[in-house]
Design a protein around this nucleic acid. Structure first.
Lengths: 335, 335
DNA sequence: TTGTAGGCGTTATCAG
DNA sequence: CTGATAACGCCTACAA
C-alpha cells in the first residue's frame, strides 16, 4: 500500500510519494533535488510542485547513509562556557548557515585524551569536517578517509589548516601603546602555553628595542592569578601588559587595593578584548583577539576543504583597542 | 567479495565483517550491540572479541535510518555567544554525555520565525528531543511524531516541559538584601519581557510591604541602557535593583561618573550572577540565575521524555550572592 | 538462541 | 532525459 494518508495527520511524505504523484520514478525526484543533474524543465516543475504540495524534502538520514557523510560540521571546544569560545562558535555558525550545514558540538576539557574521543565520536557521525579550538592532541587526532580538521590556535605549531592570531604582533602593539604612554618600567604578566610565550616575545622585543627592561610575573589566565601577580608587582612598575583580560581584571583589582591609580600611576593593557574589557573599571585597553573573525575564517577554511579546495592558512592580525586603562591624562587634581 | 582488507589501511569494519569472523549472522551481532536482546554467553563474547579486534561499533548512520531517530539532542539558543547561554550549554553537555548523546546546535536570534526554521531543521535530522532557551515561538514549534521540546525560560507561560527560574523570588531576595542595608529610596531598572516583569513584581511587593515606594527606570539589558538609567536615577535614590548584570555594569559606571559611592551612597544588586559580576568594581552582588543548573535540569527532563518518562516541570530557586556592591560598611574614615 | 529476509530513504550506476 | 535496481549499514519481525 502506498503511503496515502487517510488519517488526518500528514505523515512525513517520502520520495516515493512524490514520485507517484508526479508520475515519475524516484530517481528523477532525487535528481531534481540534487543540483548539477539534468532533468527536463517540465518534469522538474511537476516534481517540485508535488513536493511542495506534500511538504517533501530529502531526509538527511537516508542521504547521509548512502553518501557516507552528513551535512554536519564538528566543533570541538576546550570548554563550552568560556565567552571567547562562544564568539568563535558564533562566527562558525553564521558562516556555515548559508550552506545548510549545522554544528555538532563536543568539548575536550583541555585534555588530549578526551579530545581524541570527541573527535572519534564526531567521525562516527560522519561530520564533513571538524574545527578544533586550542587542540592539545594536534596531529594525533583520528582521521578517517580524508576527513579534514581545521585548527584554531593549536598548541602544536606543525598541524596544517590553521587559523591563528599573530600573537607576537599583539605583544608589539601592547608595547607601542604603553611606550606612547610614557612607560619606563614595564612588566609582563603571562601564563603557560605557546600563545602567552609569543605575546611575551613580541612585547619584550619591542620594549628592549626601546631600551626598557621587562619584569616577568607568572600567572595562569585566572583572575585570581592576576590578583596575586598584581600584588607581586614591583613598586616602580608603571606599565603592565597582561596576557589575558581575566587576569588583567585581577591585576586591576590588586592595584586598586594598593591605592595605585590606573592609568595615572600604572597603565594596563590586556589581551583578548573579551566582553569584560569594556566593563572593568577603568575600561580596559586590550589587544583584540577577533574570536568571531577566527570562527568565520575557520568555517570558510572547512567549507573549502569539504569542497576539495583547500585554502591557505590564516593569520589574523590583532588590533589594539584603546580604552581608559592605558590613556594617560594629566593627574586629575581639581583646582 | 567480502570486505577483507588486503590493502594496508584498515577500512572501517562493518557489521558483516564482524559477523563473518565470529561465524554468526549479522542479526546476532546486532543483538549483541543492542541491549535487552537475548544471546548466548559464549556467542556474545566471541562477537565482542571480534568486534574489538576490528574496531567495530555500530554506525550511527545506519542505525538512525532504521530507527527513525538519532542520538542527537537539539539545542536552540537565542544567541550562541552570550555567556549565560554558554553556561546552559555546558550544563546540558555534561548531563547528556554519559548517555552517549551529543548536541546539535542551532540559534534563533531572538526571532520566532528563525526559531521555527531551526526547529524544523533539527526535526529533519531526527533529534530525539530539543531544548529551547527563551523561546519566542512557544507552542508554535513544529512537532513531528512525539518529538519533545523542553523549554528553558520561555516567554509563553503555557508551554509544557519547562525549566524556569523563580524570578519573583529573585526580586524578593534583592529587596531583602537592600532593605537589610538600610534602603529608604529604592529604584528598579528593568527591561522588556516577562522575566524582568516578574523580578520587578517580587521586588516591588517586598519593598511596599516594608513601606518603601519603588522608582522604575526602563532599560533593555544592555550596558548602555544601564548607563542611561544610572544617569536618570533621582538624587535621593540609595538602593538599586537591576534586572541584569550587564545593565548593572552600566549603572555602576554612571554612579562612578556622578561621584556617588557604591555601596556607601547607593547600594546595588544585579541579576544573573554572570561571570562579569565578580569582576566589576566594586564586585557586584547579584541574584544567581544558576544557568548551569538549568541546563542540567533541562537535559534531565529531555532524557526523561526520550525514555518515555516525562518528569515534572522544574522551578529553580535563585540565591543571592552577596558582594561588595550591597554590603554597607561604616564610611571608611580612618581615625 | 539463532538465522533469514525485508525495509528504512536516499543516491548512483547502468541501461534504455 | 529517464527508469530500474543495487547498494549504504543496520534493526527486527518471523521462522526455525
Amino acid at each position: 500500500m502506498p503511503p496515502s494518508s487517510p488519517d488526518g495527520l500528514t505523515r512525513n511524505a517520502g520520495i516515493r510519494e512524490v514520485a507517484r504523484r508526479a508520475g515519475v520514478s524516484i530517481a528523477t525526484v532525487s535528481r531534481v533535488f540534487n543540483a548539477h543533474s539534468t532533468v527536463q524543465q517540465g518534469t522538474r516543475e511537476r516534481v517540485l510542485e508535488e513536493a511542495r504540495a506534500v511538504g517533501y524534502s530529502p531526509s538527511p538520514l537516508g542521504r547521509n547513509l548512502v553518501r557516507g557523510r552528513s551535512d554536519l560540521l564538528g566543533v570541538i571546544l576546550p570548554n563550552t562556557g568560556f565567552p571567547l569560545y562562544g564568539a568563535v562558535l558564533r562566527g562558525i555558525e553564521d558562516t556555515i548557515q548559508a550552506s545548510g550545514m549545522s554544528v555538532l558540538l563536543a568539548s575536550s576539557r583541555d585534555d588530549a585524551q578526551i579530545e581524541v574521543q570527541a573527535a572519534q565520536h564526531l567521525l562516527r557521525h560522519a561530520v564533513d569536517a571538524s574545527i578544533v579550538v586550542n587542540s592539545r592532541a594536534g596531529r594525533n587526532l583520528p582521521t578517517d578517509r580524508d576527513l579534514a580538521y581545521v585548527h584554531i590556535a593549536p598548541e602544536d605549531p606543525a598541524v596544517p589548516h590553521r587559523v591563528e592570531l599573530d600573537n607576537v604582533r599583539g605583544g608589539e602593539l601592547a608595547a607601542v601603546e604603553l611606550l606612547a604612554g610614557g612607560a619606563r618600567c614595564p612588566a609582563f604578566v603571562g601564563a603557560p602555553g605557546r600563545e602567552s610565550a609569543e605575546r611575551e616575545r613580541g612585547f619584550v622585543t619591542s620594549m628592549e628595542e626601546a631600551g626598557r627592561r621587562v619584569r616577568r610575573v607568572p600567572g595562569d589566565y585566572s583572575e585570581d592569578s592576576g590578583l596575586r601577580a598584581g600584588m607581586a608587582l614591583p613598586a616602580d612598575v608603571d606599565a603592565v601588559f597582561v596576557a589575558g583580560d581575566l587576569m588583567a581584571a585581577g591585576v586591576l583589582r590588586a592595584l586598586h587595593q594598593q591605592g595605585r591609580r590606573v592609568p595615572t600611576d600604572v597603565a594596563i593593557v590586556g589581551f583578548d578584548d573579551s566582553l569584560i574589557a569594556p566593563l572593568l573599571y577603568p575600561r580596559l585597553s586590550s589587544v583584540r583577539q577577533l574570536a568571531y573573525d577566527m570562527g568565520v575564517a575557520a568555517a570558510q577554511l572547512a567549507l573549502g576543504l569539504i569542497a576539495g579546495e583547500p585554502g591557505p592558512d590564516v593569520v589574523i592580525t590583532p588590533e589594539l583597542v584603546r580604552r581608559e586603562s592605558s590613556i594617560r591624562v594629566p593627574s586629575p587634581r581639581p583646582p
